[in-house]
């Protein structure tokens, strides 16, 4: 039996123990999340639609499937830039609030604690997606900069002469 197989079998048996320890260690995060949720649900400045969203976030905390889906959905959202176009200004204003961003952070930590294996998968897929996005945007910036430098060098010698010839002709 190869070392890889032994490591994998050991990992399978260690997984429930590690998950239980992580779940126990993150109980304060969930307590904090529950307190934030309670506070936000009675806040009159928050719309009813957002209160429904907050209520649905409460149920995700122990659901291991959330991270499994998130590890597929997050990379698509990151690469396609859906978040920039699909999130309405009202949602944007809501998620900019201090309590909302705290809620999102706590939700993320709690959901990650519920499924360590899919958190690893999520980190791999979302990391790759963010890297691709960064490289694409960095690549486009580089192309623009190089092109701008090319224009600066080429235009004084090529462009004006040609235009003057066209104008004169």
């Amino acid at each position: 039996m190869s070392t890889l197989t032994i490591v994998m079998i050991a990992a399978v048996f260690c997984y429930p123990v590690v998950s239980a320890v992580i779940l126990k260690l993150t109980e304060r995060t969930r307590d904090e999340l529950a307190d934030v949720v309670r506070g936000m649900l009675v806040d009159p400045t928050i719309s009813e639609e957002h209160k429904v969203l907050i209520s649905s976030m409460v149920d995700d905390v122990f659901d291991w499937r959330f991270m499994a889906f998130a590890s597929v959905v997050f990379p698509f959202v990151a690469i396609s830039r859906r978040a920039e176009t699909e999130i309405t200004p009202v949602d944007r204003a809501f998620f900019k609030r201090e309590d909302s961003s705290r809620l999102v952070r706590l939700h993320m930590r709690s959901v990650m604690a519920a499924s360590p294996i899919f958190t690893l998968v999520f980190l791999l897929t979302s990391g790759a997606a963010l890297l691709i996005r960064f490289l694409l945007s960095f690549g486009m910036v580089m192309v623009s900069l190089v092109w701008a430098d090319t224009i600066k060098n080429v235009s004084p010698s090529a462009g004006p002469h040609h235009l003057r010839r066209v104008a004169a002709g």
């Binding site: 779940l23 969930r30 307590d31 529950a34 649900l41 009675v42």
Partner: peptide, 17 residues
């Protein structure tokens, strides 16, 4: 942990999705 969490949330006016 789930029982503890539910206890903590007791009384919160949760909305149905």
């Amino acid at each position: 942990q789930k029982m503890r969490y539910k206890k903590r949330l007791r009384g919160a006016s949760l909305r149905l999705p």
